[in-house]
Design a protein around this nucleic acid. Structure first.
Length: 854
RNA sequence: GCCGAAGUGGCGGAAUCGGCAGACGCGAUGGAUUCAAAAUCCAUUUCUCGCAAGGGAGUGGGGGUUCAAGUCCCCCCUUCGGCACCA
């Protein structure tokens, strides 16, 4: 009797896989590639290789995809299952600023560590396809794709107020700032105008929205993207300023965007945002001072503060009036005051609005505060006494128009359409779609990112670096801070910055760099053809592998990464460079692996390693015995509750680690890491080992054979549904049966079980496979089949209910006719039927019997 | 406030189409083995009343549909995630 030596088994098979390149994936053009087989591209979101290494949260998704990848190989698919590194980014650069260690050095060290940790998990990646976004061979093509965007006019420079983070020394995109603090590191940020590169993602807003339809993605992610894109249908309406003329002598006017053109008869005032360019020219002399003060105050407030103060609206009257075009000349309602207020944002719509206090709660609040007139133009659908009250209240929903002359009595939807037509006829407005999505702020003032392939001349002209000169590599620096003038760190490389072309003309390199998102926008394409030096990818190869059939990653990328990558992909599609409209057909968000954390009675966090469980099941501090409270939280350094997979692997082996990750629950569910549960899955592997270690038999045990067929069916259907936890439960049941039967498996049975186990615990499965006489790796062996006839038994046990309550069970032949089953059931529960008459008998074949009696 | 997801034993979770609620695992309890412990094996383990036989309750709460509801419908509560003056 040998014991289950997981360390020896796992290192032996990992070496075997490496030596034999077992998981090398061939593609179109490779010798020996079989293009007739179906393909399956299963992708993990590649990690940023941080200095902290893996924690047990990473492998949750990696295990799930690896199980599927291994299963699909057995099912005869060409499986593309690669891994790489999203290796540009801030931490390595900040570390460089602090220590002088070049980011490339730090990055290489971290990547090596990550790779080693992933290998230890026995993940079946094709390591020859590994990509690294910081590799010049990769950067070259990131820059090349940027060139495509630039050529299509999708990249432009703009002086924009951007989030500036002093602590990080860089600008951040809107979405990288949460509540006025940086997403990474939570440093305070302020708005500051700077020259930036922007990408016109807004040009793709409609397609990014519409194409969500066909994707097999979680509803939550689709909803988030829809909200982020924020399509809203409405109209633009031109308002003339009463009596004012513009610089060119024509009447001054402004255009508002509204989603409710139907309520134009209720527009009793207008509001311009404080940044609106018209404010200065229309302001009455008497109001100028107040307006200046208000604008100054508004400019000091960050967006955050403006949002925080949303309950208390403020504003200043400009002294000017606008003409509401729906009213006849001479109608007193025609002239409406123009205000300035910071609840109107310059960055959305046209930066100014028409205000209908009767139909918009924000306008209503503002009108109340400053005593502006209110007209109720929509009468909501209501009955009786409520109706009269409702007609005299702010109504933002559907209903029937009132106080709106020729629109009166019409429903909102009809009134919208008719008003749009009316405006268009008179050329004072038109239907319009607006998006909340803004253009993508694409430049950063960092060293550790892709340089832009762009050159500037003295006159401010910009041109692309020739394709033949790509990549533009990062200059070697030893100081990674911005220079004295506040220019990005790349400006320190004075020689690098200066480029003289063939005509002797001097150009200056762009010194901004790309954000970390750039590399992750197309890595899934490079995985198709990672070694190609002639092109980013070969179109034939791309066409075979794309789209990604399953993409697994965290929900934190629901909007940013996934929206940016979709955008690039659509641009590449328009360039004829990729064959699909969307990159990721199916998306799954893996749940978070949380961890227990502890706090004492004062609410102070106590590190995990200073706490023990007391005999009564409560938790206390090891040193003092002081009671602490346990709670479930995200793993984080500050909570000192991070679990490192290396420790788990050392104690139980990577097969146990993988099994635990898979057994915790559905891939999509979050659950706390509970070390107490590890021995459970480890015991399963040990029991399996004992079954095989007992030796093989020549004659199959019938009960074991039946159990194996049932297990095969369950594991197969569960794997197809990614229900890895219940597939494992089925295998546990099989091993329990085999153990109970004290039967030796036949070589054939053992091989079949080994294959079922292989996706989950590949090392031990390979060992079982060879114990059963299998040659080499079983990774590509055909998946076992099952026989339905082995799953049915001669007799079945049926529950018997009386009036819907379970009262007994009967065992009947599986093919017993309805009447026999009923008779047997009646006999079984006779005691419960005494004095009653059976009114109805419901017999569901193979399921149950329900007798209705009274 | 709006949008999305989810509430099942002491714990993680299972229940494909409306048909035996709690598979599988953890933990716990009892037993076998052992000088003893670990490991292993066997049994019990939703709660509750009962010596037992047996009964009652039970899937966040309340109503409904149905012979039958964790599952379908209506209302409400809680938790988590996202958005939040977007006109």
């Amino acid at each position: 009797m040998a014991s289950y030596d997981f360390t020896a088994i796992e290192s032996r098979w990992q070496k075997c896989w490496l030596d034999n390149a077992t998981f090398r994936t061939l593609g179109p053009g490779d010798e020996g590639f079989d293009i007739s087989k179906p393909k399956f591209y299963v992708l993990d979101m590649f990690p940023y290789p941080s200095g902290a290494g893996l924690h047990v949260g990473h492998p949750k998704g990696y295990t799930a995809t690896d199980i599927l990848a291994r299963y699909k190989r057995h099912r005869g698919f060409n499986v593309l299952h690669p891994m790489g590194w999203d290796a540009f980014g801030l931490p390595a650069e900040q570390y460089a600023i602090q220590t002088g260690t070049h980011p490339a050095v730090t990055t290489k060290k971290n990547v090596d560590h990550f790779r080693e940790q992933l290998r230890a998990l026995g993940l079946s990646y094709d390591w020859q396809r590994e990509v690294n976004t910081t590799d010049p061979k990769y950067v070259r093509w990131t820059q090349w794709i940027f060139s495509k965007l630039y050529e299509k006019g999708l990249a432009y420079q703009s002086e924009v107020p951007v989030w500036w983070c002093e602590a990080l020394g860089t600008v951040l995109a809107n979405e990288e700032v949460i509540d006025g603090r940086s997403e990474r590191g939570s440093h305070p940020c302020v708005k500051r105008p700077l020259r930036q590169w922007m990408l016109r993602i807004t040009q793709y807003a409609d397609r990014l929205l519409a194409d969500l339809e066909g994707l097999d993605w979680p509803d939550s992610v689709k909803a988030m993207q829809r909200e982020w894109i924020g399509r809203s249908e409405g109209a633009e309406v031109r308002f003339a300023v009463d009596g004012a003329t513009g610089d060119d002598g024509a009447a001054a006017e402004f255009t508002v965007f509204t989603t409710r053109p139907d309520t134009l008869f209720g527009a009793t005032f207008c509001v311009l945002s404080p940044e609106h360019p018209l404010v200065d020219s229309i302001a009455a002399e008497s109001q100028k001072e107040a307006i200046e003060a208000y604008r100054l105050e508004a400019s000091r407030k960050s967006d955050l503060e403006r949002a925080e103060l949303q309950k208390d609206k403020t504003g200043v009257f400009t002294g000017a009036y606008a003409i509401n075009p729906v009213f006849e000349e001479g109608d007193p309602r025609r002239r409406v005051p123009i205000w300035v207020a910071d609840y109107v944002l310059m960055t959305y719509g046209t930066g100014c609005i028409m205000c209908v206090p009767g139909g918009d709660e924000r306008d209503f609040e503002f009108a109340q505060k400053y005593d502006l007139p209110v007209v109720f133009v929509v009468k909501p659908d209501a009955d009786g006494a409520d109706a009269d009250a409702a007609a005299e209240a702010c109504s933002t929903g559907d209903g029937v128009m009132q106080n709106s002359e020729w629109l009166d009595g019409k429903r909102v939807a009809v009134a919208k359409a008719e008003m749009c037509a009316w405006l268009e006829e008179r050329k004072i407005g038109h239907a319009k779609v607006t998006y909340r999505l803004r253009d993508w702020l694409f430049s950063r003032q960092r060293y550790w990112g892709e340089p832009f392939p762009l050159l500037h001349d003295q006159e401010g002209q910009v041109r692309l670096v020739a394709e033949a000169d790509l990549p533009v590599s990062l200059p070697v620096l030893d100081d990674f801070r911005p220079n004295a003038e506040g220019d990005p760190p790349l400006a320190r490389a004075t020689e690098w910055c200066e480029v003289v072309d063939a005509d002797g003309k001097v150009w200056r390199r762009e010194t901004n760099s790309m954000p970390q998102w750039a590399g992750s926008c197309w890595y899934y394409l490079r995985f198709c053809d990672p070694q190609n030096d002639m092109a980013a990818w070969d179109p034939k190869i791309e066409e075979y592998w794309m789209p990604v059939d399953l993409y697994v990653g965290g929900a934190e990328h629901a909007v940013l990464h996934l929206l940016y990558a979709r955008f690039w992909h659509k641009v590449l599609f328009d360039c004829g460079l990729v064959s699909t409209n969307e990159p990721f057909q199916k998306l799954v968000n893996q749940g978070m692996v949380q961890s227990f954390a502890y706090k004492n009675t004062d609410g102070v966090l106590i590190p995990v390693d200073e706490v023990k469980e007391a005999d009564d099941g409560h938790f206390e501090m090891i040193a003092s015995g002081e009671p602490v409270e346990r709670f479930v939280a995200k793993m984080s350094k500050s909570l000192r509750n991070v679990v490192n997979p290396d420790d788990v692997i050392a104690e139980y082996g990577s097969d146990t680690m993988r099994l635990y990750e898979a057994f915790m629950g559905p891939v999509t569910a979050s659950a706390p890491w509970n070390p107490r549960d590890l021995p459970g899955v480890h015991r399963f592997l040990q029991r399996s080992w004992r079954v095989f270690d007992a030796g093989l038999s020549d004659t199959p045990n019938d009960a074991v054979e039946r159990a194996l067929h049932a297990c095969t069916k369950k594991v197969t259907t569960d794997l197809d549904a990614m229900a890895n936890n219940t597939a494992l439960a089925a295998m546990m049941e099989f091993v329990n049966t085999a153990t109970k039967e004290k039967a030796q498996l036949t070589a054939n049975q053992g091989s079949r079980f080994a294959l079922l186990l292989e996706p989950f615990a590949p090392h031990l499965a390979e060992e079982f496979w060879s114990m059963c006489g299998g040659q080499g790796s079983c990774a590509w062996a055909d998946w076992p089949t099952f026989d339905e006839s082995m799953l049915v038994s001669d007799t079945i046990e049926l529950p018997v209910q009386v009036n819907g309550k379970l009262r007994g069970r009967v065992t009947v032949p599986a093919d017993a006719p309805h009447d026999d089953v009923e008779a047997a059931a009646v006999a079984e529960v006779a005691a419960h039927l005494q004095g009653k008459t059976i009114r109805k008998a419901i017999v569901v074949p193979g399921r149950m019997v329900n007798l209705i009696a009274n």
